[in-house]
């Protein structure tokens, strides 16, 4: 069952008198339960791809279906609604609100969902924090948490509204190797629980933890193939202990 369906998407930017073709006809599907890495060098169009997948941007032509909804004709407010209900974002720089507790950060997407009351919001935030293993850090401010913990809070925030897909944008980019593996291990666990994840990265060793890689270059897909998935947990165990 495909959650995301991309049909011949093009995205042009007009810069001065020139037109830059960021995406030149991209098509792919992402099925439920997949863990897809979208790879490419800078300028390959992967950021543009992510913005379109995240309903932050609309394609110049082509159609994008998320959970069966055609996105390209939707108004800004409808796009906000889709971002709120269907998509969970994880950013490279975590983007947590400063001076705000972990649980309040996790509750944030639900504040923009008026179908959810205060009590349910709180319960779901606690549940999401449990999923990422931070139930004992709920009242901590971001500056009291390590980078890995902050990213876990951000993942919990992405999980809390139970989206159809989690979009991670270089989510391990600011983390050291060990913590990166820990985060990837967490993503693998979530994937094993049935979450669909699209992970944008330029690091091949991160992509090897996913189940499928889509490689972009110059706005086109040059490779779309399953990955011989490795376990991040095993990598963690094999890492030399740092006792210094």
């Amino acid at each position: 069952m495909s959650i995301i369906k991309i049909e011949d998407i093009r995205r042009d930017f007009v810069v001065g008198s020139e037109t830059v073709h960021a995406l030149r006809g991209v098509s792919f599907d992402i099925n439920k339960g997949e863990f897809v890495s979208i790879m490419g060098t800078s300028g390959s169009g992967k950021s543009t791809m992510l913005n379109i997948l995240g309903c932050l941007d609309k394609p110049t032509s082509g159609e994008y279906y998320i959970d069966g909804i055609a996105v390209s004709k939707l108004s800004k407010d409808k796009l906000s609604h889709i971002r709120n209900r269907k998509i969970g974002f994880v950013f490279q720089s975590y983007n947590l609100l400063p001076r705000t507790t972990a649980i309040e950060n996790v509750e944030l997407p639900l504040l923009y969902n008026h179908e959810i009351g205060k009590k349910e919001r709180h319960e779901r935030a606690i549940e999401a924090l449990k999923l990422v293993g931070l139930e004992d850090r709920m009242m901590h401010m971001p500056n009291q948490l390590s980078g890995g913990q902050q990213q876990r809070v951000a993942i919990a925030r992405a999980l809390v509204s139970d989206p159809v897909i989690i979009l991670a944008d270089e989510a391990t980019g600011n983390l050291d190797t060990r913590t990166s593996y820990e985060i990837m291990s967490l993503f693998q666990q979530l994937n094993a629980q049935g979450k669909t994840i699209a992970f944008v990265t330029h690091e091949p060793d991160i992509a090897q933890f996913t189940t499928r890689t889509i490689m972009l270059r110059d706005g086109k897909i040059i490779k779309d193939e399953p990955v011989n998935t490795l376990s991040a947990q095993e990598f963690l165990l094999n890492l030399p202990l740092q006792n210094d």
């Binding site: 609604h81 709120n84 974002f89 609100l97 944030l108 997407p109 923009y112």
Partner: peptide, 16 residues
């Protein structure tokens, strides 16, 4: 600005 971007990305509308 970044906070506003984040709020928008998690579903805040312009009017919110």
């Amino acid at each position: 600005t970044k906070e506003i971007g984040l709020r928008m990305s998690i579903g805040a509308r312009s009017r919110d």
